[in-house]
Design a binder for these strands. Structure first.
Lengths: 157, 157
DNA sequence: GCTGTTTTGGTCAGATAAGGTCAAACGCAT
DNA sequence: ATGCGTTTGACCTTATCTGACCAAAACAGC
Protein backbone atom coordinates (compact mmCIF):
# COMPACT_ATOMS: atom_id res chain seq x y z
CA UNK A 1 0.00 0.00 0.00
CA UNK A 2 1.61 3.14 -1.12
CA UNK A 3 2.23 2.94 -4.81
CA UNK A 4 1.35 5.84 -7.01
CA UNK A 5 -1.30 3.71 -8.66
CA UNK A 6 -2.90 3.18 -5.27
CA UNK A 7 -3.05 6.91 -4.64
CA UNK A 8 -4.55 7.61 -8.00
CA UNK A 9 -7.06 4.86 -7.40
CA UNK A 10 -8.13 6.29 -4.04
CA UNK A 11 -8.30 9.77 -5.44
CA UNK A 12 -10.71 8.67 -8.14
CA UNK A 13 -12.79 6.69 -5.67
CA UNK A 14 -12.90 9.73 -3.42
CA UNK A 15 -14.27 11.77 -6.27
CA UNK A 16 -16.86 9.09 -6.88
CA UNK A 17 -17.85 9.03 -3.20
CA UNK A 18 -18.16 12.77 -2.93
CA UNK A 19 -19.84 13.43 -6.24
CA UNK A 20 -23.60 13.45 -6.59
CA UNK A 21 -23.69 10.62 -9.13
CA UNK A 22 -21.91 7.33 -9.44
CA UNK A 23 -19.84 8.89 -12.15
CA UNK A 24 -16.83 11.18 -12.46
CA UNK A 25 -15.26 12.90 -15.38
CA UNK A 26 -11.56 13.71 -15.44
CA UNK A 27 -8.90 14.57 -17.93
CA UNK A 28 -5.98 12.25 -18.38
CA UNK A 29 -3.56 15.08 -18.88
CA UNK A 30 -4.76 16.97 -15.84
CA UNK A 31 -4.68 13.89 -13.62
CA UNK A 32 -1.19 13.02 -14.81
CA UNK A 33 -0.04 16.52 -13.94
CA UNK A 34 -1.64 16.40 -10.51
CA UNK A 35 0.23 13.21 -9.70
CA UNK A 36 3.35 14.17 -11.65
CA UNK A 37 3.41 11.03 -13.71
CA UNK A 38 3.29 9.91 -17.29
CA UNK A 39 -0.19 10.13 -18.80
CA UNK A 40 -0.08 6.46 -19.64
CA UNK A 41 0.10 5.77 -15.92
CA UNK A 42 -3.54 6.76 -15.79
CA UNK A 43 -4.39 4.12 -18.36
CA UNK A 44 -2.58 1.59 -16.23
CA UNK A 45 -4.65 2.49 -13.19
CA UNK A 46 -7.85 2.35 -15.19
CA UNK A 47 -7.08 -0.98 -16.74
CA UNK A 48 -6.02 -2.65 -13.51
CA UNK A 49 -8.45 -1.12 -11.01
CA UNK A 50 -11.48 0.20 -12.78
CA UNK A 51 -12.46 -2.84 -14.76
CA UNK A 52 -15.96 -4.15 -15.32
CA UNK A 53 -15.14 -7.16 -13.14
CA UNK A 54 -14.53 -4.76 -10.30
CA UNK A 55 -17.72 -2.90 -10.99
CA UNK A 56 -16.66 0.06 -13.07
CA UNK A 57 -17.18 1.15 -16.64
CA UNK A 58 -14.85 3.61 -18.27
CA UNK A 59 -15.75 5.73 -21.25
CA UNK A 60 -13.33 8.03 -23.06
CA UNK A 61 -13.15 10.52 -25.86
CA UNK A 62 -10.11 11.80 -27.70
CA UNK A 63 -9.41 15.07 -29.38
CA UNK A 64 -10.08 18.58 -28.18
CA UNK A 65 -12.51 18.46 -25.29
CA UNK A 66 -11.58 14.85 -24.63
CA UNK A 67 -12.31 13.19 -21.29
CA UNK A 68 -12.23 10.06 -19.21
CA UNK A 69 -15.51 9.19 -17.53
CA UNK A 70 -15.77 6.52 -14.87
CA UNK A 71 -19.10 4.98 -13.89
CA UNK A 72 -19.50 2.93 -10.76
CA UNK A 73 -21.96 0.07 -11.05
CA UNK A 74 -24.16 -0.52 -8.08
CA UNK A 75 -24.38 -4.30 -8.12
CA UNK A 76 -22.16 -6.68 -6.26
CA UNK A 77 -19.75 -7.82 -8.92
CA UNK A 78 -19.52 -11.41 -7.68
CA UNK A 79 -23.14 -12.35 -7.83
CA UNK A 80 -24.04 -10.33 -10.85
CA UNK A 81 -24.61 -11.46 -14.36
CA UNK A 82 -21.54 -9.49 -15.33
CA UNK A 83 -19.37 -12.01 -13.64
CA UNK A 84 -21.12 -14.84 -15.44
CA UNK A 85 -20.67 -13.21 -18.79
CA UNK A 86 -16.96 -12.90 -18.18
CA UNK A 87 -16.76 -16.52 -17.09
CA UNK A 88 -18.80 -17.94 -19.93
CA UNK A 89 -17.69 -15.94 -22.91
CA UNK A 90 -14.11 -16.51 -23.90
CA UNK A 91 -12.36 -15.64 -27.13
CA UNK A 92 -14.81 -17.69 -29.13
CA UNK A 93 -18.19 -19.25 -28.47
CA UNK A 94 -20.62 -21.43 -30.36
CA UNK A 95 -24.29 -20.82 -30.74
CA UNK A 96 -25.50 -23.31 -28.21
CA UNK A 97 -23.29 -22.03 -25.40
CA UNK A 98 -24.37 -18.50 -26.19
CA UNK A 99 -28.03 -19.43 -26.10
CA UNK A 100 -27.58 -21.21 -22.81
CA UNK A 101 -25.95 -18.16 -21.31
CA UNK A 102 -28.77 -15.88 -22.39
CA UNK A 103 -31.33 -18.30 -21.03
CA UNK A 104 -29.58 -18.42 -17.68
CA UNK A 105 -29.39 -14.65 -17.47
CA UNK A 106 -33.11 -14.43 -18.13
CA UNK A 107 -33.70 -17.07 -15.49
CA UNK A 108 -31.66 -15.09 -13.00
CA UNK A 109 -33.82 -12.12 -13.72
CA UNK A 110 -30.99 -9.85 -14.80
CA UNK A 111 -32.02 -9.78 -18.45
CA UNK A 112 -35.58 -9.13 -19.55
CA UNK A 113 -37.28 -10.80 -22.48
CA UNK A 114 -36.90 -7.94 -24.88
CA UNK A 115 -33.18 -7.61 -24.25
CA UNK A 116 -32.85 -11.34 -24.66
CA UNK A 117 -34.66 -11.14 -27.98
CA UNK A 118 -32.27 -8.43 -29.14
CA UNK A 119 -29.28 -10.52 -28.24
CA UNK A 120 -30.74 -13.50 -30.02
CA UNK A 121 -31.38 -11.41 -33.12
CA UNK A 122 -27.82 -10.18 -33.03
CA UNK A 123 -26.04 -13.45 -32.45
CA UNK A 124 -28.16 -16.49 -33.22
CA UNK A 125 -30.62 -15.67 -35.91
CA UNK A 126 -27.77 -15.44 -38.34
CA UNK A 127 -26.86 -17.69 -41.21
CA UNK A 128 -23.55 -19.45 -41.27
CA UNK A 129 -20.73 -17.99 -43.30
CA UNK A 130 -17.84 -19.77 -44.93
CA UNK A 131 -15.55 -18.95 -42.00
CA UNK A 132 -16.94 -20.78 -38.98
CA UNK A 133 -14.03 -20.13 -36.66
CA UNK A 134 -13.98 -16.41 -37.30
CA UNK A 135 -17.70 -16.50 -36.77
CA UNK A 136 -17.28 -18.00 -33.32
CA UNK A 137 -14.79 -15.28 -32.48
CA UNK A 138 -17.01 -12.48 -33.70
CA UNK A 139 -19.97 -14.02 -31.91
CA UNK A 140 -18.03 -13.96 -28.66
CA UNK A 141 -17.13 -10.31 -29.04
CA UNK A 142 -20.58 -9.17 -30.02
CA UNK A 143 -22.20 -11.23 -27.31
CA UNK A 144 -19.90 -9.92 -24.61
CA UNK A 145 -20.18 -6.31 -25.71
CA UNK A 146 -23.93 -6.28 -25.94
CA UNK A 147 -24.56 -8.20 -22.74
CA UNK A 148 -22.12 -5.99 -20.84
CA UNK A 149 -23.94 -2.94 -21.99
CA UNK A 150 -27.34 -4.34 -21.14
CA UNK A 151 -26.27 -5.48 -17.70
CA UNK A 152 -24.43 -2.29 -16.84
CA UNK A 153 -27.29 -0.13 -18.09
CA UNK A 154 -30.48 -1.95 -17.20
CA UNK A 155 -33.72 -0.80 -18.86
CA UNK A 156 -35.62 2.04 -17.18
CA UNK A 157 -32.38 3.11 -15.49
CA UNK B 1 -19.65 17.19 -23.85
CA UNK B 2 -17.53 20.22 -23.83
CA UNK B 3 -15.98 21.06 -27.16
CA UNK B 4 -16.87 24.18 -29.03
CA UNK B 5 -18.20 22.04 -31.85
CA UNK B 6 -20.57 20.38 -29.41
CA UNK B 7 -21.90 23.74 -28.27
CA UNK B 8 -22.41 24.95 -31.79
CA UNK B 9 -24.16 21.72 -32.63
CA UNK B 10 -26.56 22.02 -29.71
CA UNK B 11 -27.19 25.65 -30.43
CA UNK B 12 -28.24 24.86 -33.98
CA UNK B 13 -30.39 21.95 -32.86
CA UNK B 14 -31.99 24.20 -30.28
CA UNK B 15 -32.89 26.66 -33.00
CA UNK B 16 -34.34 23.81 -35.01
CA UNK B 17 -36.37 22.54 -32.06
CA UNK B 18 -37.74 25.93 -31.18
CA UNK B 19 -38.40 27.17 -34.67
CA UNK B 20 -41.75 26.66 -36.35
CA UNK B 21 -40.33 24.62 -39.23
CA UNK B 22 -37.76 21.88 -39.50
CA UNK B 23 -35.45 24.46 -40.93
CA UNK B 24 -33.19 27.17 -39.63
CA UNK B 25 -31.26 29.89 -41.38
CA UNK B 26 -28.08 31.41 -40.00
CA UNK B 27 -25.11 33.37 -41.19
CA UNK B 28 -21.71 31.83 -41.01
CA UNK B 29 -19.97 34.99 -39.97
CA UNK B 30 -22.54 35.88 -37.38
CA UNK B 31 -22.39 32.39 -35.87
CA UNK B 32 -18.61 32.48 -35.84
CA UNK B 33 -18.72 35.79 -34.01
CA UNK B 34 -21.23 34.51 -31.49
CA UNK B 35 -18.95 31.61 -30.65
CA UNK B 36 -15.74 33.60 -31.12
CA UNK B 37 -14.21 31.20 -33.55
CA UNK B 38 -12.92 31.03 -37.08
CA UNK B 39 -15.71 30.94 -39.66
CA UNK B 40 -14.37 27.68 -41.02
CA UNK B 41 -15.20 26.14 -37.65
CA UNK B 42 -18.83 26.39 -38.67
CA UNK B 43 -18.13 24.37 -41.78
CA UNK B 44 -16.45 21.77 -39.63
CA UNK B 45 -19.51 21.43 -37.46
CA UNK B 46 -21.79 21.22 -40.47
CA UNK B 47 -19.71 18.60 -42.18
CA UNK B 48 -19.31 16.39 -39.14
CA UNK B 49 -22.77 16.71 -37.57
CA UNK B 50 -25.30 17.87 -40.08
CA UNK B 51 -24.77 15.36 -42.83
CA UNK B 52 -27.42 13.71 -44.97
CA UNK B 53 -26.58 10.42 -43.33
CA UNK B 54 -27.61 11.95 -40.04
CA UNK B 55 -30.77 13.35 -41.48
CA UNK B 56 -29.91 16.92 -42.35
CA UNK B 57 -29.54 18.83 -45.56
CA UNK B 58 -27.55 22.03 -45.67
CA UNK B 59 -28.03 24.66 -48.28
CA UNK B 60 -25.88 27.75 -48.56
CA UNK B 61 -25.57 30.87 -50.56
CA UNK B 62 -22.62 33.23 -50.85
CA UNK B 63 -22.47 36.91 -51.51
CA UNK B 64 -24.43 39.74 -49.96
CA UNK B 65 -27.38 38.38 -48.04
CA UNK B 66 -25.75 34.98 -48.02
CA UNK B 67 -26.94 32.30 -45.61
CA UNK B 68 -26.61 28.81 -44.32
CA UNK B 69 -29.91 26.98 -44.17
CA UNK B 70 -30.23 23.67 -42.36
CA UNK B 71 -33.17 21.39 -43.01
CA UNK B 72 -33.95 18.52 -40.71
CA UNK B 73 -35.29 15.63 -42.71
CA UNK B 74 -38.39 14.46 -41.02
CA UNK B 75 -39.80 11.06 -41.75
CA UNK B 76 -42.95 9.49 -40.44
CA UNK B 77 -41.99 7.60 -37.29
CA UNK B 78 -42.28 3.84 -36.90
CA UNK B 79 -42.84 2.56 -40.40
CA UNK B 80 -40.23 4.77 -41.94
CA UNK B 81 -37.61 3.80 -39.39
CA UNK B 82 -38.00 0.28 -40.66
CA UNK B 83 -37.96 1.53 -44.19
CA UNK B 84 -34.75 3.40 -43.52
CA UNK B 85 -33.08 0.34 -42.11
CA UNK B 86 -33.90 -1.55 -45.28
CA UNK B 87 -32.71 1.29 -47.44
CA UNK B 88 -29.47 1.87 -45.63
CA UNK B 89 -28.34 -1.61 -44.76
CA UNK B 90 -27.47 -3.69 -47.76
CA UNK B 91 -25.46 -6.88 -47.94
CA UNK B 92 -22.52 -5.21 -46.31
CA UNK B 93 -21.95 -1.97 -44.43
CA UNK B 94 -19.01 -0.12 -42.96
CA UNK B 95 -18.79 1.32 -39.51
CA UNK B 96 -19.36 4.91 -40.38
CA UNK B 97 -22.52 4.25 -42.36
CA UNK B 98 -23.84 2.10 -39.53
CA UNK B 99 -23.11 4.80 -36.99
CA UNK B 100 -24.80 7.42 -39.09
CA UNK B 101 -27.89 5.28 -39.40
CA UNK B 102 -28.12 4.79 -35.67
CA UNK B 103 -27.58 8.49 -35.01
CA UNK B 104 -30.35 9.26 -37.42
CA UNK B 105 -32.81 6.82 -35.88
CA UNK B 106 -32.11 8.38 -32.49
CA UNK B 107 -32.64 11.83 -33.91
CA UNK B 108 -35.94 10.69 -35.38
CA UNK B 109 -36.99 9.52 -31.97
CA UNK B 110 -37.64 5.91 -32.98
CA UNK B 111 -34.64 4.54 -31.10
CA UNK B 112 -33.84 5.51 -27.54
CA UNK B 113 -30.34 6.09 -26.21
CA UNK B 114 -30.04 2.76 -24.51
CA UNK B 115 -31.05 0.79 -27.57
CA UNK B 116 -28.62 2.87 -29.58
CA UNK B 117 -25.86 2.07 -27.12
CA UNK B 118 -26.63 -1.64 -27.43
CA UNK B 119 -26.41 -1.46 -31.18
CA UNK B 120 -23.16 0.44 -30.97
CA UNK B 121 -21.73 -2.14 -28.63
CA UNK B 122 -22.76 -4.88 -31.02
CA UNK B 123 -21.50 -3.38 -34.23
CA UNK B 124 -19.02 -0.56 -33.78
CA UNK B 125 -17.15 -1.04 -30.58
CA UNK B 126 -15.49 -4.02 -32.11
CA UNK B 127 -11.92 -4.53 -33.12
CA UNK B 128 -11.01 -5.19 -36.68
CA UNK B 129 -10.33 -8.73 -37.72
CA UNK B 130 -8.18 -9.95 -40.55
CA UNK B 131 -11.23 -10.37 -42.79
CA UNK B 132 -12.64 -6.90 -43.32
CA UNK B 133 -15.07 -7.81 -46.07
CA UNK B 134 -16.64 -10.62 -44.10
CA UNK B 135 -16.81 -8.23 -41.21
CA UNK B 136 -18.81 -5.75 -43.26
CA UNK B 137 -21.21 -8.53 -44.23
CA UNK B 138 -21.69 -9.73 -40.68
CA UNK B 139 -22.08 -6.16 -39.50
CA UNK B 140 -24.89 -5.63 -41.99
CA UNK B 141 -26.71 -8.76 -40.85
CA UNK B 142 -26.36 -8.07 -37.17
CA UNK B 143 -27.31 -4.45 -37.60
CA UNK B 144 -30.41 -5.26 -39.60
CA UNK B 145 -31.54 -8.03 -37.28
CA UNK B 146 -31.13 -6.06 -34.09
CA UNK B 147 -32.61 -2.83 -35.41
CA UNK B 148 -35.62 -4.61 -36.88
CA UNK B 149 -36.29 -6.21 -33.56
CA UNK B 150 -35.91 -2.99 -31.64
CA UNK B 151 -38.12 -1.03 -34.00
CA UNK B 152 -40.86 -3.61 -34.14
CA UNK B 153 -40.79 -4.14 -30.39
CA UNK B 154 -40.13 -0.74 -28.86
CA UNK B 155 -39.22 -0.56 -25.18
CA UNK B 156 -42.04 -0.18 -22.69
CA UNK B 157 -44.32 -1.99 -25.15
C1' DG C 1 -25.15 45.57 -70.09
C1' DC C 2 -20.20 45.52 -68.35
C1' DT C 3 -16.81 45.84 -64.74
C1' DG C 4 -14.87 46.31 -60.38
C1' DT C 5 -15.75 46.16 -55.37
C1' DT C 6 -17.78 44.29 -51.40
C1' DT C 7 -19.87 40.82 -48.96
C1' DT C 8 -20.46 36.31 -48.09
C1' DG C 9 -19.44 31.46 -47.87
C1' DG C 10 -15.90 27.24 -49.25
C1' DT C 11 -11.61 24.54 -49.02
C1' DC C 12 -7.74 22.53 -47.32
C1' DA C 13 -3.41 21.97 -45.12
C1' DG C 14 -1.48 22.31 -40.81
C1' DA C 15 -1.58 23.41 -35.84
C1' DT C 16 -3.45 22.02 -31.46
C1' DA C 17 -5.42 19.21 -27.97
C1' DA C 18 -6.85 15.36 -26.28
C1' DG C 19 -6.43 10.11 -25.34
C1' DG C 20 -4.25 5.01 -26.64
C1' DT C 21 -0.65 1.43 -27.10
C1' DC C 22 3.24 -1.11 -26.22
C1' DA C 23 7.68 -2.44 -25.06
C1' DA C 24 11.32 -1.55 -22.02
C1' DA C 25 13.03 -0.11 -17.51
C1' DC C 26 12.41 -0.16 -12.63
C1' DG C 27 12.06 -1.93 -7.98
C1' DC C 28 10.86 -4.74 -4.47
C1' DA C 29 9.74 -9.30 -2.36
C1' DT C 30 10.73 -13.95 -2.56
C1' DA D 1 18.27 -13.70 -9.49
C1' DT D 2 13.77 -13.94 -10.85
C1' DG D 3 9.17 -12.56 -11.21
C1' DC D 4 5.44 -9.44 -10.83
C1' DG D 5 3.33 -5.18 -10.35
C1' DT D 6 4.55 -0.50 -11.49
C1' DT D 7 6.31 3.41 -14.12
C1' DT D 8 8.03 5.75 -18.05
C1' DG D 9 8.74 7.28 -22.84
C1' DA D 10 8.41 6.97 -27.67
C1' DC D 11 5.15 6.83 -31.08
C1' DC D 12 0.14 6.59 -32.83
C1' DT D 13 -4.83 7.88 -33.64
C1' DT D 14 -8.64 10.84 -33.33
C1' DA D 15 -11.09 15.20 -32.90
C1' DT D 16 -11.00 19.93 -33.09
C1' DC D 17 -9.70 24.63 -34.53
C1' DT D 18 -7.38 28.21 -37.28
C1' DG D 19 -5.65 30.91 -41.16
C1' DA D 20 -4.45 31.71 -45.72
C1' DC D 21 -6.31 31.64 -49.96
C1' DC D 22 -10.38 30.71 -53.27
C1' DA D 23 -15.20 31.37 -55.38
C1' DA D 24 -19.63 33.14 -55.89
C1' DA D 25 -23.34 36.49 -55.45
C1' DA D 26 -24.90 41.16 -55.01
C1' DC D 27 -24.22 45.88 -55.82
C1' DA D 28 -22.57 50.35 -57.55
C1' DG D 29 -21.06 53.21 -61.25
C1' DC D 30 -20.47 53.59 -65.64
Amino acid sequence: MGSLSDYIESYLKLLLDNGPHDCVEVQRRELAERFRCAPSQINYVLSTRFTVERGYVVETRRGGGGYIRIYRLDEEPETSGIHMVYESVGDAIDRKAAEDLVARLVDMGVLDERDAACVRAAVFDQEDTEAPELERIIRARVLRAILMLMLTQPPTA
